[in-house]
Design a protein around this nucleic acid. Structure first.
Lengths: 170, 170
DNA sequence: ACCTGAACACCGTTCAAGT
DNA sequence: ACCTGAACACCGTTCAAGT
């Protein structure tokens, strides 16, 4: 005699994403949010690690929706990181290997914007350089790490302008 | 009647640094390495979090010893990250706030190298741009994240050359 | 003063038993 | 087929009792 479903994978991942930002991504907390006991989660998720990977994939999918030129992409990227710092850290530095598909999807906006600047043959390498700088800058900023004094927004603008100049096709 | 010391803070931090790279930085594992029971660690360390912060500080102190021009600093930095990926992630993305003193010490090599390129008045902002790019590049590399196909070393060299050109005083 | 064993709260996970 | 309570191993931390 089947019992009716009391939750779903989507609901579980959504709860996990919220709890990640609250610094409390435990199976117990997820279970409580979706109205179920912790062991029941294992009907839909193989392990906590798999759930974390799903959160990373969902985050990357969202980043893949960004549109615009390199300035638009850069500021949307940074805004996202400020709104969801834990998710940003997860996909960025967090030692979590997201699915290849999610990684490719997330790369599209930057590839397009970088290709427009650097030309098709330098698209990939330009996108990498830009992504590395943006990710690194934001990571430092979120960490308040390498906390050299001075206005952060100016440093962002300086770096962005220099990067654009350096990457643009002669 | 005092018992003789069976370990020391230095030994504990050293053990923690090794275990961090092994992905097993638990109080139990540290205690076992230094030949003591886990509760005894709390005589020298307030909490596991404090121990992790000490590991971060020790890592930053080591990075502060790097010398040379921007190419030397960049490759020493990258080599360190490859040898001690977990420590790099910790100081880079890991949501751990290292002590201000350790952060300043770690920044010196890059400030010097960037200042030589960009001139004194742009030293700070140039160092930030360079550090952001290098940190971001290495983080992506360690993650095998943003895993766009192509030779990684070429992308590193391309980015480094472009960065140097972009930062150099006209 | 440092060390230990016992204990506590918490966490991820398994599993038999319910419906 | 999904859900639950009970249980297990593990982890960080506290504390009274030993020397």
């Amino acid at each position: 005699m089947p019992t009716p479903d009391r939750t779903s994978l989507d609901e579980i991942v959504a709860a996990a994403r919220e709890l990640l930002e609250l610094g409390d991504l435990t199976m117990q907390a997820v279970a409580e949010r979706v109205g179920v006991q912790a062991p029941s989660l294992y009907k839909r998720v193989r392990s906590r690690d798999e759930l974390v990977r799903m959160v990373a994939d969902a985050t990357l999918a969202e980043l893949g929706l960004i549109e615009g030129d390199i300035y638009a992409v850069a500021s949307a990227f940074r805004a996202f990181a400020h709104q969801r710092p834990a998710a940003f850290r997860l996909v960025m530095g967090g030692g979590v290997t997201a699915s290849p598909h999610a990684i490719v999807a997330a790369s599209q906006p930057i590839l397009r914007a970088a290709g427009a600047l650097a030309g098709a043959q330098n698209e990939l390498v330009a996108a990498r350089t830009f992504t590395a700088w943006a990710n690194g800058f934001i990571a430092m900023e979120l960490n308040s790490g390498f906390n050299l004094a001075g206005p952060v927004d100016d440093a962002w603008q300086y770096g962005l302008d220099r990067l654009v100049a350096a990457i643009s096709a002669s």
